[in-house]
């Protein structure tokens, strides 16, 4: 399948002697983001080595004695140290990681998977649409685009969460919103009247957006239902499927395409994804329990 943009180029992919063995990192900073999410800043315990990655890639993080979880990288690809992960405490491993303290160690395998088409999108308008924790894998895109802002057309960020309290990176959102070269819209599904911003699902933000469909690359990350509705609205706005990118999630055990768990139709999400063009997944998304 030919695509306008190839999301495969993965600069972080390194030759690992044994990709199943975690490298030990140390927690440099721990920040609570929301009630159930937190951000870890990590450095190699050995003190050396850098962890280059491409926007959209993920690592397998290991909590000693508990287990592993696939977590997207949410730091700056142009400045990959420290390694930054924003994690939602939903499973055994991620809940255990929530209890880590500065100085504690954590195992890291990766980076794995495909990247957002940040390089390929140069010269185009960039439309970033995130839902909930979905902003974490898209933050590297924002960093990378802003690092070379002149090389892109308009830049939009649309972000929806359940409530104002669930919003990630509040300070940075404020900063991005204050820029003249970036349009930021946020919305929440529900709020008390103290919230001054928008209330409504993330698709409501799209309604008024004026897009140049032939010159825009859309990158969407959030719950699968949210991505499907957003993509449908983008199609209504005459965007072609090969200009719409989504990041998929499935069970992952190895991260290197050998364990079989993350199969999605003919592909493995850990190596063919997690970032896909919409034409790669539109048929699969229409089917249940694939």
């Amino acid at each position: 399948m030919e695509h306008v943009f190839d999301s495969k180029a993965a600069p972080g992919r390194r030759a690992v002697l044994s990709p199943m063995v975690p490298e030990i990192f140390r927690v440099e900073k721990y920040r609570k983001e929301t009630l159930d999410t937190y951000t870890l800043e990590l450095k190699p315990a050995s003190g050396t080595g850098e962890h280059r990655f491409g926007a959209g890639q993920f690592n397998m993080l290991y909590k000693f004695g508990v287990g592993e979880a696939a977590i997207s990288i949410s730091g700056d690809p142009t400045s990959p140290n420290p390694l930054i992960h924003t994690i939602r405490a939903v499973g055994t491993a991620t809940k255990a990681m929530a209890k880590l303290k500065v100085g504690d160690t954590i195992g890291v395998r990766g980076p794995f998977g495909s990247c957002w088409p940040v390089e390929a999108a140069k010269g185009n308008d960039v439309l970033i649409i995130a839902g909930g924790i979905g902003l974490a894998p898209l933050r590297p895109v924002i960093y990378q685009v802003l690092a070379e802002r002149r090389k892109y057309g308009k830049v939009f960020l649309l972000y929806g969460t359940r409530t104002p309290e669930d919003m990630l990176y509040r300070a940075e959102l404020e900063k991005w919103r204050a820029r003249f070269d970036m349009e930021v819209h946020v919305t929440v599904d529900r709020a008390s009247s103290e919230w001054h911003g928008n209330v409504g699902v993330v698709t409501t933000l799209l309604k008024k957006l004026v897009l140049d469909p032939d010159n825009t690359v859309a990158m969407i990350c959030g719950p699968e239902i949210m991505m499907r509705f957003v993509a449908m609205d983008l199609i209504k706005k005459e965007m072609t499927l090969d200009r719409i990118y989504v990041s998929m999630e499935r069970n992952m055990k190895c991260g290197i395409g050998l364990c079989g768990h993350c199969q999605y139709g003919p592909t493995f999400i850990c190596k063919d994804g997690p970032v896909y063009t919409y034409d790669q997944v539109i048929e699969l998304l229409a089917r249940r329990e694939i």
Binding site: M20, G65, G67, E68, N251, C259, G260, H261
Partner: peptide, 30 residues
């Protein structure tokens, strides 16, 4: 297909990761 199993001993000082054959027929698989 395979899965990984993380275990610790009773002291909590020693951990091990084992690889096991797995099957797409289990609920856990996905």
């Amino acid at each position: 297909c395979m899965t990984v199993l993380d275990t610790t001993d009773l002291t909590g000082q020693n951990a091990e990761r084992k690889r096991h054959w797995d099957s797409c027929f289990t609920l856990d698989f996905s």
